[in-house]
Write a protein that binds this DNA or RNA. Structure first.
Lengths: 144, 144
DNA sequence: TATATTACTTATCAAATGATAACATAAAGG
DNA sequence: CCTTTATGTTATCATTTGATAAGTAATATA
């Protein structure tokens, strides 16, 4: 198979994922926080406990800027900051109760959009979709 | 199958696509244009000919801001603006020769990153990946 | 123990993006 | 023809995000 052709298909697929995602997330953002802050909360939500540096690295934000945004989220009472027991230079970030609620609410909205778009999927179709994703995650979009 | 579970898998997959994409695009951007301008050029590149409104709609930019960014790209000689013959309110946007070259160069860089990450794929694997993408594009990430 | 290095913070400035009002002009519809 | 609607532009301001220098405190290391 022509590698260029294959690459084109992948790029095209990525484009479709991005635009679909945009549609899904539409109207799902709180008006209190910025998009970047929302991605930080998402990241913390899925990772449970992280340090400031990890947030910075994984979301490609410089450490000072990550620190700034985390401070804002802290002042909004959406995250908890604890000094790490074993290495007190480190700060452990986790979602506060309000932060968790915010994430759950926005995911509910995303989920509604999702089912509006992808309803009437049969059992078989869901299974086939999941196995497709597994293939892609194994070979192309490898989880960090 | 539990719909919540299915939703989780999809969200997780989307996350992986986004972070992989970030990696792929790393270092692939021109230093002359902003990320948003780059996505505009990408969009025009794949769509061949579009109007200002289409750029605004598809990239979720307000019309005035789309107009502003297109003006900058025009001044950089990266796009061509032509008044539409049939409806002279409309402007047809397309890539200039330098614009096309810029896109081709950045795609080459993205492609290099891609193969660095996803090399040694067999014929069978590529075919299986493509068919997985087709499934997802049919059912979940439906092209606009 | 002196000296690096790591993790983070604060402050400041610049650049990119978003939002909105006011305007111009072309086309559509009564 | 007159009014309304659609397409786009310009200008201005606010917000968000990026970049960088300087500083603090804890840990690692020579």
């Amino acid at each position: 198979m022509d590698k260029n052709k294959f690459f084109q298909v992948v790029i095209n697929f990525i484009g479709n994922v991005h635009s679909s995602t945009h549609f899904l997330k539409k109207d799902a953002r709180s008006n209190k926080i910025t998009p970047q802050q929302h991605s930080i909360l998402e990241y913390v939500f899925f990772s449970k406990e992280v340090t400031t540096s990890q947030v910075a690295d994984c979301l490609n934000i410089s450490l000072p800027n990550a620190s700034r945004e985390l401070k804002k989220l802290f002042k909004l009472d959406l995250i908890i900051k604890e000094s790490n027991e074993k290495d007190r230079r480190k700060t452990t970030i986790s979602l506060s109760k309000p932060g968790q609620n915010l994430m759950l609410r926005t995911f509910e909205r995303i989920q509604k959009n999702f089912w509006k778009q992808a309803d009437e999927l049969s059992e078989d179709e869901m299974r086939s979709i999941i196995s497709s994703m597994k293939v892609l995650e194994k070979k192309v979009f490898i989880p960090y």
